[in-house]
């Protein structure tokens, strides 16, 4: 049975329809990604899943319990890594974990016994007495991750967990997420990093304007929605070259700004013409999730 099942969610704020029939189901042990441009409805979906807001229509079950009716009971074994850090700035690292454990009804002795292990996991061993102000951005994120594990959660909601982190810190978080998945925990991940989703998610949903517009494994999505090869071309005269050559030789071309994205099953003819164009520079690569995302949600800015 799905550990999180979402069916036909609708939600409006005033005249603004934020969700227009969102459905998906996450199996135990899965890392499921929610991707989408700003305003697609990801954060609202998470809020509804946690029971922080009531859907106008639709059904939600978390850990087999109806939400929001039994959201409190469901959250007993749920962890949350919010988009913005909300650690307690007045407390030390250790106090943050101990006090957070109390909210779940855990005895101090139980949490105290678990703290060394949690700090170890977060790469914060020996920092128990440090104040929050002393921590770097990456350390705060890791402490937030450790805090979300204080109640031994079955499901962890991670809302853009690596936004603003340097590559080292990001890789450490990814490694820890894999460890958690290996322990059989379930992760619901929202992210703007396609690379992150491609690495971690067994399945993902791409959302736009309040709907799920595509769902599947990263590989399936690339295979289904996009030509397998991409040639990115830029330099003086790229527009002329695109009109004269690429539009015939590629299956699909998108010209944005100074760059032509040429999608093709067989890029050999394209590459051959590029050899003769000294003014043009190019990059030949496999299609990836970002190409799918941009194709499905468009290249226009969302604000």
């Amino acid at each position: 049975m799905a550990i999180l099942a979402v069916e036909g969610l609708h939600k409006s704020y005033g005249a603004l329809q934020v969700l227009r029939g969102v459905s998906f189901a996450i199996e135990r042990g899965e890392c499921y990604g929610l991707l989408g441009p700003n305003g697609a409805g990801k954060t609202t979906t998470l809020r509804l899943c946690l029971g922080h807001s009531e859907p106008d229509a639709g059904k939600l079950q978390l850990r087999g319990l109806p939400v929001p009716a039994m959201a409190r009971e469901a959250r007993v074994r749920v962890g949350v890594v919010p988009q913005m850090d909300n650690l307690d700035p007045d407390f030390t690292v250790e106090e943050n974990l101990r006090v957070y454990g109390r909210y779940f009804g855990l005895q101090d002795s139980v949490v105290r016994a678990r703290i060394p292990q949690l700090l170890d996991f977060a790469g914060l061993a020996g920092r128990a007495g440090a104040s929050i102000q002393e921590l770097s951005g990456g350390m705060k994120r890791r402490l937030t991750l450790a805090r979300s594990l204080v109640n031994d959660p079955e499901v962890i909601f991670m809302d853009e967990p690596t936004t603003g982190l340097d590559p080292q810190a990001r890789h450490l978080i990814w490694e820890r997420m894999r460890t958690l998945l290996g322990e059989g925990r379930t992760i619901l991940l929202t992210t703007h990093f396609m690379e992150e989703a491609e690495r971690l998610c067994s399945r993902l949903a791409i959302m736009d304007t309040g709907r799920v517009i595509a769902e599947g494994s990263p590989r399936q999505l690339v295979a289904q929605h996009i030509e397998p090869q991409v040639v990115e071309v830029y330099g003086d005269g790229v527009e002329h070259w695109t009109r004269a050559q690429a539009s015939h030789l590629a299956d699909r071309v998108e010209l944005t700004g100074e760059t032509a994205f040429c999608y093709a099953s067989n890029p050999a003819p394209l590459l051959a013409t590029l050899e003769a164009q000294a003014a043009l520079r190019y990059l030949h690569r496999h299609a990836n999730l970002e190409d799918v995302f941009l194709k499905l949600t468009g290249r226009d800015l969302r604000e």
Binding site: R72, R75, V76, V80, P82, N86, Y100, Y103, F104, N151
Partner: peptide
Amino acid sequence: VQRTWEAIMNAPLT
């Protein structure tokens, strides 16, 4: 400012 309430409400509190 600190969003402490939001953190607390992710636990089984209303």
